[in-house]
Design a protein around this nucleic acid. Structure first.
Length: 273
DNA sequence: AGTGCGACCCGAACGC
DNA sequence: TGCGTTCGGGTCGCAC
C-alpha cells in the first residue's frame, strides 16, 4: 500500500540507480497499465534516459529529455533493479532495459498501477496531477484551507483524509494514524471538524509522514518498496491493523470498523465522538 | 453538486 | 486436504 512515504522512499532509492542511462529496450506485458498510446510509449522511451525523478502526491514523475513518465503504484506496484539476464517473474509487467544490460522492472501483483507518458509541455494540463491537493508539510496547508474544504461536508473525516484533492498523499494507513494522533473519531463528519481538530490534523500529518519517510515507509502485508528496501514505520503504528490489541496510550482495545467500505482502526477512548 | 458504490485485480484468508 | 468464497484497497466513473 504505497502512500506518500513509500512513494518518496521509492523515488529516493531509484534516483541513485537509474539516472542518465540510455534505455535500449522497453517490454510491455500488460498494455492496459499504460494510459497513453502504447506504441508511442515504447518509441519515445527508447534511446531516451531518465534525468530526474520527482513526485507529486502518490505520483512518481520520471523526467526524460522531452517527456515525463508518470507512474502511480496504487496498491502493490514496486520497482526492482535486475540484470536483463534474470528470468521474468510472473507479475513483472513493464521492463525497461538500459544500455548496460541492467533492468528497471515494474512489478504489480494486482495490476492496479498505471503509467502515462506525456510531453513535458503537457505536465500542467494533466488532470491527475492538477487535481492533487496540498501535501502534508506544505505551508499552504492551513486550518483555514482545511475548514473551507470540510465545511458542509456530510462525509466522515476519515474519508475526507483519503480525498487526494484535499490533502495529497495520505492512504488508509496514515489516515488512521493521523486521526489517532489528532484524537479525532474517524466517523466525525467534515462539517463537525473544529479549528483545533484541523490544526491537530495538520500537525499530526506532517509529523507522521516525516517520521515514516525517515524510516523508509511502512512494510505491511505484501508491500515492500523497491530494491528490497523494508520500511520500518510499521513498528510505530498506533492503531492500523491492531484490532483488539491494546491502545499504546490508554490500554483500551483498538476497534476496527468499516467506513466507506474501508477498514478503519481507532481507539474508542482516545478518539471520542 | 454532493454522495455512494461497483469495477478494476488477484493472492491470501476464511469457511465448510 | 481441497475447493469455493470473501476480502482488501486507490482511484475512476457512473447512478442517484
Amino acid at each position: 500500500m504505497p502512500e506518500i512515504a513509500e512513494v518518496e522512499t521509492v523515488r529516493r532509492t531509484l534516483k541513485k540507480q537509474i539516472l542518465n542511462k540510455k534505455i535500449k529496450k522497453v517490454q510491455i506485458f500488460y498494455p492496459k497499465m499504460i494510459e497513453s498510446n502504447v506504441a508511442d510509449f515504447e518509441k519515445n522511451l527508447i534511446n531516451n534516459e531518465f534525468i530526474d525523478i520527482k513526485r507529486r502526491g502518490k505520483w512518481l514523475i520520471f523526467e526524460l529529455h522531452d517527456f515525463y513518465l508518470l507512474s502511480h503504484l496504487r496498491m502493490e506496484g514496486k520497482y526492482f533493479l535486475k540484470s536483463s539476464n534474470d528470468i521474468k517473474e510472473k507479475h513483472e509487467h513493464i521492463i525497461f532495459t538500459f544500455e548496460d544490460n541492467s533492468d528497471l522492472r515494474y512489478h504489480d501483483t494486482r495490476k492496479f498501477g498505471r503509467m502515462n507518458l506525456i510531453k513535458k509541455s503537457d505536465l500542467e494540463k494533466t488532470e491527475a496531477l492538477k487535481k492533487q491537493g496540498l501535501e502534508p508539510g506544505d505551508n499552504n496547508l492551513t486550518t483555514d484551507y482545511l475548514l473551507e474544504k470540510f465545511k458542509n461536508k456530510s462525509i466522515p473525516i476519515k474519508t475526507l483524509l483519503l480525498d487526494q484533492t484535499i490533502i495529497s498523499g495520505l492512504g488508509n494507513i496514515y489516515a488512521n494514524e493521523v486521526l489517532f494522533a489528532a484524537k479525532i473519531h474517524p466517523e466525525k463528519l467534515g462539517k463537525e471538524i473544529t479549528e483545533e481538530n484541523a490544526k491537530n490534523i495538520i500537525t499530526s500529518a506532517d509529523k507522521i509522514i516525516k517520521r515514516a519517510i525517515e524510516l523508509g515507509g511502512t512494510t505491511i502485508k505484501s508491500y515492500t518498496s523497491s530494491l528490497g528496501v523494508t520500511g520500518r514505520f510499521q513498528q510505530e503504528l498506533m492503531v492500523h491493523k491492531r484490532e483488539n490489541e491494546e491502545c499504546r496510550l490508554c490500554h483500551n482495545k483498538i476497534q476496527k470498523i468499516k467506513i466507506n467500505g474501508r477498514s478503519t482502526y481507532f481507539c474508542p477512548n482516545c478518539q471520542k465522538k
